[in-house]
Amino acid sequence: MATSALSLEHVDAFYGDSHVLQDVSFELGEARMLGLLGRNGAGKSTCMNVGMGLLGARNGAIKVFGQPVTRLPPEQISASGVALVPQGRRIFRSLTVRENLVVAARKPGTAGRHAEWTIETIFEMFPRLQERASQMAAHLSGGEQQMLAIGRALMGNPRILLMDEPSEGLAPQIVAEVMATIRKLKESGLSIILVEQNPNLVFDVADDIVILNTGRVAVVSTPAALQKDDALLRQHLGVF
């Protein structure tokens, strides 16, 4: 496998007393895409939050390109090259579209080999955001908000992109657009974790698959292998 971009090693995480992640380990390879699947409440978002530093891991380690970042605050993990497109988008609603992008701007790190993202290149990729540049972000449609959330994450010029259910609540046509964007990002060399509930969206684009079940890693596999194993999918994801 390629060098590891992001790894969780034996991570335990809690919300208060409830033990939400139990001994979770997986690894995202450099320039690869890992599909993270699981039912509602399986712990997918919690993995993203732990990886981003929003929630501290009680045990275990998180590493970014081999460097431990366990228990670093989000702003430092962001500086180490990780960006998050959070579930529910969570754009800054009282900022304009342009301001949402500007506040997240960061020059690429020394190790960044990718083309630099700027507000201009983001607008090139999402022309609709440019048209609405000086509107309040709260007034955007769901699809536009998702694009803004992706653009905002890219403004940090990350090497690792965590995307938490970017298709949630969007019309099929918009989902297709978002997926096309994600594919482009992968081709640009970003290492990506794509969280989804619908495995079919992920099978098309991901290199590796991890399935969580009630806070534990249940399956580590590949799309090709899983597509042949309906029983396993049904066991951990329900019926599709």
């Binding site: 702003e75 800054f92 900022l95 301001e99 506040v103």
Partner: peptide, 24 residues
Amino acid sequence: TRIGAMIRAGVDDPDMARVVGIRV
């Protein structure tokens, strides 16, 4: 100003502000 926008981002959603690298 950018710093003003950062402050407003921090008001809106402090956690997300930190996630995008703002030292809230």
